[in-house]
Write a protein that binds this DNA or RNA. Structure first.
Lengths: 134, 134
DNA sequence: TTAGAGTCTCCCCACGGGTGGAGAGTCAAG
DNA sequence: CTTGACTCTCCACCCGTGGGGAGACTCTAA
């Protein structure tokens, strides 16, 4: 009558994730199984569902599985991972800001090129595209 | 006394690109050799340098090698690729704009999460991170 | 003629997060 | 006991743009 655990298909059904993905997470150490059946089937506890929700949420916030692994390690050590997550999220914002700067600059370059673009200029045998001058 | 062509190392030296990259471009069909030596060495013409400048420029504008291939095909057919390049660059701007929208939205989400973040909240056994509520 | 530099093809590796399939073993219901 | 669904491990592949190296061959200058 003890809860012996879910097999991987049951966890897939309840979490909405593909079986392959769950195996992948377990291989990475993100999702420890509570054990194996006699035949070698992975058995998962109820807390796996919470864990998968956590992983999904952090993935949606742009963290890599490696980042998430670190947060879960803190949790598994019995501490609250909130501080670590906060740092990761701040780093994420910094990365986004940098990317935004790059993209805005890049857009300016593209825009200025198209500004005086001539679709059908006089051919020039010395270059491939006269508008780009190369 | 005919110009029999450069070997790949000479082209690498003059273009500043690694030999490996030139072979890769030739395999893709981006950079046709004018032939092979008796021993099987690739031989390139002078126009290869112009071609590589063109490729480099379009790469720096965010086009993929596939996109560039299309432009070069137009050029090789004897037409000016300017119209095609213009379309590619406009598409590039559209992609950048979409990406900018996504990133701005994403930044808002991250920022609002950190707004009321508590680094060290009361532990809650039902969730892994009380701030995220998962 | 010979040494050494250059080049050839072919194959594996990188990144991140998985997906697909083969072949074999396991589990539960009828 | 059988059958069909489930699961196991292991290997390969995807995206793009090359990099690294092995083993064999070629070219050129002295």
């Amino acid at each position: 009558m003890a809860a012996v655990g879910m097999k991987i298909g049951a966890l897939a059904g309840r979490s909405g994730l593909p079986v392959k993905t769950l195996r992948y997470y377990e291989d990475l150490g993100l999702l420890p199984a509570i054990g194996r059946s006699e035949g070698g089937y992975r058995l998962f506890g109820e807390e796996s569902l919470r864990r998968l929700e956590f992983i999904r949420r952090l993935k949606s916030l742009g963290l890599t599985l490696d980042d998430i692994q670190e947060c879960l390690a803190v949790h598994d050590a019995g501490e609250l991972p909130c501080g670590d997550i906060q740092r990761q999220l701040q780093r994420q914002i910094d990365l986004v800001d940098e990317r935004l700067r790059e993209l805005r600059l890049f857009r300016k370059e593209l825009q200025s090129l198209l500004q005086n673009w001539q679709s059908d200029p006089a051919p020039n045998t010395a270059v491939i595209c006269p508008n780009l001058n190369v």
